[in-house]
């Protein structure tokens, strides 16, 4: 080219095209996303993180956890299972009704040992006739949408993560490396705050042979007062502190653990359908409860009887 204007034109066209495609278009499509409703329960999703967990997100970022851990669950496919729950009061009626629709399935042996997986179908619509036949005969049947994939088989999540999962994160860190396991649902998987704290202090104590570095600088080693602190880590063996000393988490460690326990991404959404697990009977607020349970406040009498270890 003899002229620089063509060089600049080429650069301008190429860069503005990719800017339009990967900066502007995502902003237009996803940049104003707000809370949405889960399907079918129509609960609000996502919920903003509580304050301590929000601070923990800052700690996560500053420690560079993203360089070993990802926070996104992948999915390779999806399957739909039809599960027979109950044959109803007149089992023979149900069996014959089902046989009319699908001779293969309407056999007595399929009705033994309920609940039992009847079959897999291509999609929800394909199960309609089976569901209708069984329900109208008084039986109970359910159709479960189950995403499949390596991450899901490993128990790292029930469905793939999507944009909606991250709309309230200040720095979104889905990560591109797995030197350590994925953390998208660690709040469901490892909900014990104590375990998380011990694991941060000495990963090899909780998982033998772990390659995760120890984060002792997140903890404080101090002399035990009259009574050991309620939030001192319960360590054993080579990881326990010397006699007369205790290991206490700093605010950063607490915040980080609160953040980890707040990581959930399993609510069923339109773009990532999954049949939710049956709702637990009690309140699901294990997050804050679990962490708070370990951050006990001393009562006045305990404070008065203890030397200088109150928090």
């Amino acid at each position: 080219m003899k002229s620089s204007s063509i060089v600049f034109l080429a650069a301008f066209i190429a860069l503005s095209a990719s800017w339009g495609g990967f900066v502007l278009a995502p902003q237009l499509q996803l940049g104003r996303a707000d809370q949405t409703k889960t399907v079918p329960a129509e609960e609000k999703y996502p919920l903003a993180r509580p304050g301590l967990a929000q601070q923990g997100a800052e700690v996560y970022r500053s420690l560079g956890c993203v360089y070993c851990h990802s926070q996104q669950v992948g999915q390779n496919g999806v399957k739909v299972e039809v599960v027979l729950l109950d044959a109803g009061t007149n089992a023979d009626n149900t069996i014959s009704a089902l046989a009319k629709v699908n001779a293969q399935l309407g056999k007595p042996e399929n009705f033994i040992g309920l609940p039992k997986k009847l079959t897999e179908v291509a999609d929800i619509g394909a199960a309609d006739s089976i569901v209708k036949a069984v329900t109208e005969s008084g039986g109970k049947i359910e159709v479960n949408v189950i995403p499949t994939g390596a991450d899901i088989s490993r128990g790292w999540g029930k469905r793939r993560t999507v944009a909606q999962d991250f709309i309230y994160d200040s720095v979104v860190q889905p990560g591109t490396r797995r030197a350590g396991p994925d953390l998208a649902n660690v709040g469901s998987r490892l909900a014990d705050a104590n375990w998380q704290l011990r694991h941060l202090y000495a990963p090899q104590a909780e998982i033998k042979g772990s390659t995760m570095p120890a984060y002792r600088f997140l903890f404080e080693k101090r002399k035990v007062g009259k009574v050991t602190s309620a939030d001192a880590l319960k360590l054993t063996g080579e990881f326990a502190p010397p006699a007369g000393f205790e290991i206490v988490p700093t605010d950063d460690a607490r915040a980080l653990v609160a953040y980890l326990l707040s990581l959930h991404a399993e609510a069923p959404l339109f773009e990532s359908p999954v049949t939710p697990p049956p709702a637990p009977a009690a309140s699901t607020n294990t997050t804050i409860v679990a962490v708070r349970a370990e951050i006990k406040n001393y009562t006045a009498s305990e404070l008065l009887s203890v030397e200088g270890t109150a928090k």
């Binding site: 399907v39 079918p40 999806v78 291509a122 999609d123 929800i124 619509g125 773009e271 359908p273």
Partner: peptide, 14 residues
């Protein structure tokens, strides 16, 4: 792994 909105629609609960 869904390929279109119609594809996602097929797996929405009734």
């Amino acid at each position: 792994p869904y390929s279109s909105v119609a594809d996602v629609q097929r797996f929405q609960p009734k």
